[in-house]
């Protein structure tokens, strides 16, 4: 079965309630809806963040997110997937990313949302630049993200 997948890379904010209503209403067999929302922190590695700018590789980003969503559908029985990621300039507390998964039962929804975030953080071509009182710098990739990803890779169907 083809699972409805919504992927959006956008500068504008998103409304979580609207998005969850939309995915939850896709199919009346849905019994579990899990969402994750990533926000801009005001402090990172002891530095105050004034603004954060997100750059991406237009075209490749959408393609990578579709591949990640496809990998999740192959592992879990899902009824819907939503991935929204913002780009451009953001302020502390702004929403960056929404991942939502819908399934008949909660385990598939919880696990697939976790999987989608781990893959997104390591595979989708986005880059964060933080503006601090001492100047601007590109955020370094974290080893913990690669470790999080490896949790899924010794199981079947990794990307």
């Amino acid at each position: 079965m083809k699972v409805p997948v919504k992927i959006s890379v956008q500068t504008e904010d998103f409304d979580v309630t609207t998005e969850l209503k939309r995915i939850g209403n896709l199919d009346s067999t849905i019994g579990a809806l899990v969402s994750f929302v990533g926000l801009v922190r005001d402090v990172n590695d002891d530095q105050i963040i004034k603004t954060m700018t997100l750059e991406h590789y237009a075209g490749m980003t959408e393609q990578a997110l579709h591949e990640i969503a496809q990998a999740a559908q192959e592992r879990w029985p899902l009824q819907g997937i939503t991935i929204i990621h913002r780009v451009g300039e953001l302020l502390p507390s702004d929403q960056i990313v929404l991942v939502a998964t819908a399934s008949r039962h909660r385990h598939a929804a919880f696990e697939s949302a976790d999987f989608l975030m781990d893959y997104l953080k390591s595979k989708a071509p986005f880059w964060k630049k933080e503006q601090t009182p001492d100047g601007a710098h590109w955020v370094d990739a974290r080893e913990s993200d690669a470790i999080a990803l490896s949790r899924w890779q010794d199981k079947q169907n990794s990307l």
């Binding site: 990533g38 953080k121 071509p125 990739a141 993200d145």
Partner: peptide, 10 residues
């Protein structure tokens, strides 16, 4: 062809 640093989205 594209060249870039490790990604940091999410």
């Amino acid at each position: 062809i594209a060249f870039f640093p490790p990604v940091t989205g999410g």
